[in-house]
């Protein structure tokens, strides 16, 4: 059973936060192999200074996106967040004091804020929301797991509206480590962002995009993954030809996803807009929903009657996922 994206908010390296500029203007490009988020004015998004003062960048990005997304919702019955690496800056800050000060003069705030559920917890605190609240932290499956949980909750009737979001941040250390690990070979750039969605069991307006299906696949070689793609399409009663737009985020540009690449009218490498990070697929869902709603691609190219977007994400060739959107 599908659910509907009744609101969505993106803080990304592009002009996406409460702005149309990304679809009308040109795209921001990476500097020094990093695509840094265009951050909101936090004094506006999190008005109370007392709330902001302990928040690191990822927390501010996530809370800003989450609050904006929940704004105007007819109740939020669950808050589900996802992050691959969590609050890295606070983690590094605390680790730094453990190492440099030899386990003395420790800053409790950095430790408290370093937990993976900080953003979901802060949103609950600010909204005074006592409903189901959980955080997924599993590499390239973090956001997909959150979506799956949200969809099942809606299907079970345990929630009408679920706030789902994902975030990761760039830090100098994480960039340097990944550089040493060879992540940025093949032209990949590091990205970051916070993307939130309000998912509902019913539409709030006629052009709401449906989140139809999400699936994760561990350790599948490409040949085996071709079969997974076929299985995913057939369980949704679809032929390859019924997919209009493919948003792919993969380091392997030669892989054709069981023929989907050649069959679709448009295939877009979404990570050129948001960069590489464990929850990048959350940006792709935002982008896919926006593309279907506008009937246009970010470059301005219009799409006639595009009905379906397939999001394909490959994280380190270990975590692959498929997400199907429909209007």
């Amino acid at each position: 059973m599908a659910c509907f994206i009744t609101n969505k908010i993106s803080v990304s390296p592009q002009q996406t936060f409460l702005s149309d500029s990304f679809f009308s203007g040109s795209a921001n490009v990476a500097e020094e192999r990093k695509l840094r988020a265009v951050e909101p004015n936090y004094k506006e998004t999190i008005a109370e200074a007392g709330l902001r003062r302990r928040m690191s960048r990822i927390v501010k990005m996530g809370v800003s996106a989450g609050l904006a997304c929940a704004n105007g919702a007819d109740g939020v019955d669950a808050i589900i967040t996802a992050t691959g690496l969590g609050c890295l800056a606070d983690t590094e800050k605390f680790l730094d004091s453990v190492v440099r000060n030899d386990e003395s003069l420790l800053n409790p705030t950095a430790f408290i804020q370093s937990t993976f559920n900080t953003i979901g917890a802060q949103i609950a605190l600010i909204l005074k929301n006592s409903s189901y609240n959980v955080t997924y932290a599993h590499r390239g499956f973090s956001f997909e797991s959150a979506l799956l949980d949200a969809m099942l909750r809606i299907e079970d009737g345990d929630a009408r509206n679920v706030l789902v979001g994902a975030m990761d941040e760039i830090t100098d250390l994480s960039f340097a480590v990944m550089e040493r690990l060879g992540f940025w070979r093949n032209g990949a750039v590091m990205g970051e962002g916070a993307n939130f969605f309000l998912l509902s069991g019913s539409k709030s307006s006629a052009d709401d995009v449906a989140l139809v299906d999400v699936a994760t696949f561990m350790n599948r070689k490409e040949e085996a993954f071709d079969k997974c793609v076929q299985g995913f399409l057939s369980r949704n009663n679809l032929e390859i030809s019924q997919i209009d737009v493919l948003l792919y985020g993969s380091s392997d540009k030669s892989y054709c996803l069981g023929g989907v690449c050649s069959a679709v009218s448009e295939a877009v490498d979404y990570k050129k807009y948001c960069g590489e990070f464990p929850t990048a697929s959350s940006f792709a869902v935002w982008l896919g929903a926006e593309v279907l709603k506008r009937g246009a691609l970010p470059c301005g190219k219009t799409l006639d009657g595009a009905k379906r977007v397939l999001v394909y994400t490959d994280y380190q060739s270990v975590n692959r996922s498929l997400i199907l959107l429909e209007i």
Binding site: N133, V134, H138, T216, M218
Partner: peptide, 11 residues
């Protein structure tokens, strides 16, 4: 195990 894997982190 490869059919499904995920991780939760809520302290």
């Amino acid at each position: 195990i490869s059919d499904f894997v995920t991780t939760i982190s809520t302290a």
